Simulated assay, not measured.
Amino acid sequence: MGTAKFIFAGAAAIGMLALPAFADDMNGMITRIDRLNNTISIQQMQKGTVGGSAGGAGSLQEYKAKDAGMLESVHAGDRVTYTATATDGTGTLTKLQKQ
């Protein structure tokens, strides 16, 4: 019985590691907005170095907006600065600002 608990605890820890890490003030481009379901998809922009391929596309993430009003002033194709958190395996958009 103790071994089973250890295995399940290990699997839960691995599942938590699979969640994307969110940082403050990420930059991206909106690829899709679903105002009926209050979700938004953002293509995260990779940070580049001088002489590098700055502005390259990074991972695509879908977020649930903290409140519906956040999505009213933005459209697909807009570049944004945003902040998100992970709650129960779901990304929640907490801040969204058009660049």
Rank of each mutant, 00 (worst) to 15 (best):
A76Q: 13
I14K: 12
G77A: 07
N27M: 11
I33H: 06
H75Q: 15
T90M: 12
I33P: 02
I14H: 06
I14E: 10
A57M: 12
S53I: 09
P20K: 09
A23D: 09
G58Q: 08
G28N: 09
L96Q: 06
I14Y: 10
Q61M: 14
L36S: 12
A54H: 09
A76C: 04
G15P: 04
K95S: 10
L19K: 07
A68K: 14
A21H: 10
T83L: 03
T90A: 12
T90P: 00
L96P: 05
D78I: 05
V50Y: 06
F22V: 12
S53W: 03
K98C: 01
F6K: 14
T87D: 15
T83W: 01
R79T: 10
L96A: 04
G77F: 04
K95E: 09
L36F: 05
F22T: 12
S53P: 03
M29E: 14
N38V: 11
V80D: 05
K66H: 08
G55N: 04
T85F: 01
Y63M: 15
A84Q: 03
G56A: 14
N38I: 10
Q43M: 13
Q97S: 13
F22L: 09
K64V: 14
A68S: 15
Q43L: 10
Q61G: 00
A13T: 05
G51Q: 11
Q46A: 13
T92V: 15
M16I: 01
L93D: 11
P20C: 07
L93G: 07
A13H: 05
G77M: 10
Q43I: 02
G15R: 11
A86R: 05
Q46K: 15
M29K: 14
M1W: 02
D34G: 04
A9F: 03
G58P: 09
R79P: 00
L36A: 14
R35T: 08
Q44G: 01
M45K: 12
T87Q: 15
G48D: 10
S41R: 07
D78W: 02
A21S: 12
Q43H: 06
G56R: 11
T90I: 15
V74H: 05
G56Y: 01
M45C: 02
Y63R: 06
A68P: 01
A11M: 13
R35N: 04
L36H: 08
K47V: 14
G56I: 02
G55Y: 06
T3V: 09
A57L: 05
E72G: 06
L71W: 06
D78Y: 01
G58K: 08
A84S: 14
F6G: 01
A54P: 00
T49D: 13
A13N: 08
D24A: 13
N37S: 11
